[in-house]
Simulated scan of single mutants.
Amino acid sequence: MLWAAYTVSFLVLYALPGDPAKLIAGPDATDITPAQLDALRAEFGLDKPLIVQYFDRLLSLVRGELGQSLPTGRPVSELIGEALPSTIQIAALGLLLAIVFGAGLAILATFSRNRALSRLLLALPPLGVAIPGFWFALLLIQWFSFGLPLFPAVGNVGFASTVLPAITLALPTGATIAQLLSKSLANTLREPYIDTVRAKGAGPARVHFRHALRNAALPALTVTGLIVGQLLSGTVVAETVFSRPGLGRVTATAVAQQDIPLVQGIVLFAAAVFVVTNLLVDLIYPILDPRIVIGRPRVARVQTGVPA
């Protein structure tokens, strides 16, 4: 996964129009000579063939070196480390809100006996997925910063400044969780073992939360692991609209400046977060469903005649 992320980002960045050497020189260097541009290309290794640059950077990454930013000359790891805390704040809060809102909406929609209310609640997740993030962010600013001055519209000062960006991130993520969990709960509640539980006298709350939710949560848990990458990509919009310093704005600036080492470092970091998150999700599966065994499947042992 990490190697694929590095390769794709490398090829895409080199396919972008523009000369990295001119971007390194800066917009004010209008009288720079071709010889000076050649010297810049030689200094940063941009004069080498593409395949040589690819393997040079790949070997550096294997050694744990992310390289230096082309415009600033600062280490990529240092730039990512400075921007990361602000991004973690809104991404973590956004994921928490998405899980709470998404799971709460799905449970309420499937638990309610009012069909009109259930249909209304089930219609909200597709709407949440379809709403553009930047437009929703502008609405939040209009409502809760200008209309009701409850939260600041821009900046990164205190907990209040993280609320609106986190809600912006939580909307599509929570809608996806709600959409999948509600369908999974509806299907689980129609399973034969649920009828058995009800026949034994279990009440609606016990059936819903003790028996159905635990099994229905597995698909939603899988999607939650997958949409962590969506949260990181969504920070580009959130941090730009709310003028927050963070990994999203650093990414947007690096792409605009064709800062190849910095963009690749950010892409690799996002891929690493994705890989680790999905590994943790796989490890949580057996806790929710003891029938899932890590390693050799228990069902296979039973089929071969070996006691489970």
Rank of each mutant, 00 (worst) to 15 (best):
P71F: 06
Y6C: 03
V197Q: 07
R113K: 12
V273M: 02
G64C: 13
G18I: 01
A217Y: 09
N187K: 00
L40R: 00
V299F: 01
A92P: 04
H211L: 03
T30W: 02
V100E: 10
V197K: 05
D195G: 04
P219T: 11
S161T: 06
G73H: 03
T188K: 03
L185I: 03
T168G: 00
L2F: 01
V228N: 14
L120G: 14
T251A: 06
V276K: 05
P204E: 08
Y6D: 09
I167E: 02
A103N: 13
I99Q: 02
I194C: 01
I194A: 02
F209T: 00
I107E: 01
F242V: 08
D31K: 10
E82D: 14
V267G: 00
F144K: 10
L108P: 12
P297Q: 02
L59D: 11
S182R: 05
V163C: 01
V52W: 10
A15H: 14
P172S: 09
L164A: 03
G265W: 01
T240R: 13
G45S: 02
G133D: 14
V228P: 14
P49E: 12
A21M: 09
F159M: 03
R41K: 15
Q257P: 07
G229Y: 02
L84D: 04
A217I: 15
A300F: 11
L2K: 02
A25Y: 14
I292V: 05
V207F: 01
